[in-house]
Simulated assay, not measured.
Amino acid sequence: MLRLYDMNTISEVKRIQGEQNGDLTIVRKGASLFTDDLEIEDALEDINKNRE
Results as ranks from 00 to 15, higher is better:
residue 37 D to K: 11
residue 40 I to D: 04
residue 25 T to R: 14
residue 4 L to F: 10
residue 40 I to H: 00
residue 51 R to F: 15
residue 46 D to G: 12
residue 3 R to Q: 13
residue 12 E to L: 00
residue 24 L to F: 15
residue 50 N to D: 15
residue 13 V to Y: 03
residue 29 K to C: 02
residue 27 V to M: 05
residue 4 L to T: 07
residue 20 Q to R: 13
residue 31 A to S: 09
residue 47 I to R: 07
residue 38 L to W: 09
residue 29 K to D: 01
residue 1 M to C: 08
residue 6 D to F: 02
residue 39 E to R: 10
residue 6 D to L: 03
residue 13 V to G: 03
residue 14 K to T: 00
residue 2 L to Q: 07
residue 37 D to I: 14
residue 19 E to T: 15
residue 24 L to S: 06
residue 34 F to C: 04
residue 40 I to L: 15
residue 32 S to Q: 14
residue 44 L to R: 01
residue 52 E to D: 08
residue 48 N to C: 09
residue 29 K to P: 02
residue 39 E to G: 07
residue 6 D to C: 01
residue 38 L to S: 09
residue 24 L to K: 10
residue 47 I to Q: 05
residue 18 G to Y: 13
residue 26 I to W: 06
residue 42 D to P: 00
residue 8 N to Q: 13
residue 52 E to F: 11
residue 12 E to Y: 07
residue 11 S to Y: 06
residue 18 G to R: 08
residue 34 F to K: 01
residue 43 A to D: 01
residue 28 R to K: 07
residue 7 M to C: 08
residue 48 N to L: 10
residue 36 D to C: 13
residue 17 Q to R: 12
residue 36 D to Y: 09
residue 16 I to A: 15
residue 11 S to G: 03
residue 11 S to Q: 14
residue 43 A to F: 15
residue 19 E to F: 08
residue 3 R to F: 09
residue 23 D to Q: 13
residue 17 Q to C: 12
residue 1 M to A: 14
residue 23 D to C: 01
residue 27 V to R: 06
residue 39 E to L: 13
